[in-house]
Computed example of a mutant assay.
Amino acid sequence: MGASAAVRRASRWQDSVRLLLLINAAAKPPADREVVPPLTVGVVRTQVRLQKLDFWVRNPDYLAYELMNEYEATPDVPRLLEVAAEILESEEPDLRRFPMLRYKYGAFEELDDALAPLVERGLLRKTQVLGHERVVEHIYFLLEQGRQVAQSMVAEAPALAWYAVRTRLVVDLVDGLGGSQLKDRQYLLRDYADTPWGRHIGPITGQARERLRELQAAQRP
Rank of each mutant, 00 (worst) to 15 (best):
T205V: 13
D175Y: 09
P196R: 01
G176D: 10
G206T: 09
I201V: 11
T205D: 10
R213I: 00
L182R: 02
T195E: 09
D184C: 01
D184P: 00
R168D: 11
D175W: 11
P203I: 03
A217D: 14
E210A: 15
E214Q: 13
T167E: 03
Q216F: 06
R190S: 12
Q181G: 07
R190K: 13
A208E: 02
D175F: 09
R199S: 13
Y163V: 09
E214W: 00
E214N: 02
W197M: 14
A164L: 08
G198K: 01
R166I: 06
G206L: 03
I204R: 00
G178S: 08
G176T: 06
G179Q: 05
R190M: 04
L189D: 07
R213A: 13
W197Y: 13
Y187A: 12
K183V: 08
D194M: 13
R185E: 08
A193T: 05
R190H: 11
T167L: 05
T205C: 03
Q216L: 15
T205W: 06
A217Q: 14
V174Y: 10
T205L: 02
R168L: 09
R209I: 01
L188F: 06
R166S: 07
Y187W: 10
E214I: 03
G178P: 02
G179W: 08
V174E: 08
S180C: 00
D194L: 10
R209V: 04
D191R: 12
G178C: 07
Q181D: 13
A164G: 08
A208I: 04
G198W: 06
L212T: 07
D184L: 12
H200T: 09
R166N: 12
L169F: 02
G198S: 02
E214R: 11
G178M: 06
R199Q: 15
T195W: 01
T205F: 03
W197V: 13
R213F: 00
E214M: 07
E210F: 06
K183D: 14
D172S: 15
V174A: 13
D175S: 14
L177K: 10
